[in-house]
Write a protein that binds this DNA or RNA. Sequence first.
DNA 1: GGCAATTTAATTGTATACAATACTCTGGAA
DNA 2: TTCCAGAGTATTGTATACAATTAAATTGCC
Lengths: 159, 159
Amino acid sequence: MADVNPVLLDEQLCFSIYSASKKFNHFYQSALAPFGLTYPQYIAMLVLWEKAPLTVHQLGDRLELDSGTLTPLLKRLEKQGWVSRVRSQTDERQVLIHLTEMATTKRDEVYSRIGQCQNLLGMSGDEIDSMMSELVTVKEQLDNVSHRRLITKEVDKVN
Amino acid sequence: MADVNPVLLDEQLCFSIYSASKKFNHFYQSALAPFGLTYPQYIAMLVLWEKAPLTVHQLGDRLELDSGTLTPLLKRLEKQGWVSRVRSQTDERQVLIHLTEMATTKRDEVYSRIGQCQNLLGMSGDEIDSMMSELVTVKEQLDNVSHRRLITKEVDKVN
DNA sequence: GGCAATTTAATTGTATACAATACTCTGGAA
DNA sequence: TTCCAGAGTATTGTATACAATTAAATTGCC
């Protein structure tokens, strides 16, 4: 136990990101209150507005969520009238998520609302771009480490 | 509906942060597998290792979590032997969270493990500092907007 | 053509998050 | 002293997340 340094919460990038993520979550939940959408429901709708219909799997690829999360989320979106879930005719394993007429109609209202609320944040495009590119780097590192399974293998090997 | 611009998932800072937060979560969950700690349990332990005992409220202030989340989380930490939950003698409304002997003993092991795993990420201190200071700015903006309740008031006023 | 391996969703079980509510305790005002 | 507003924690209900398993459909390979 020679190389031990204290780990302080306030110095942890992970906590900054975790905390920011929760704040964004609340921000959009409030912003979208008129539409009754949660943040995860909202990002699902964003993807569908870009390109519907999509299978659960395709949607999950974009959102980095699996069917364990998406199935109940999509059932709630269906109950609230945003999407319909239809078994594919050509491959009955798949479920296609279609937009309803209501979702198509309300798309621009949501886009507009989001645009207005984001303006309140007063962040320039450059600030946002710079931050996002740094986040890409971090995420790539995290993916690399997980993918190479370094965490459980290489660290243990050292000990 | 004049000012409508499409909202694309890949251009959303919120999604970059949301996604990074989930990846960090997995990273630490793997890193801490030998100790059986989840990420939220780990950050709770970090705070307690800095300064225990703390009341549920004090811990919640640091972690930005309320008793609805912390009470069950702390019960699980207690069941696994990391903390003890003790009603304060001087104010019976409060519950003090103490470290167990096991937690004190294992602290440096966890610190060391975290240090090693973080090294695998290959991020310089400067990179981390720069990112964290940008995140502070974003979080302040989000706090301001929520606090001033701009989302539901000022935007609606415009319409 | 038949069947094992794979793919796709759904389900189950555990652990966060958080709003809203309930409950108990404390300190102060009448 | 009694009463009550407020503080601190727990509980309830809803909605994510995700690992692991299940079940059904499809594909590949012989």
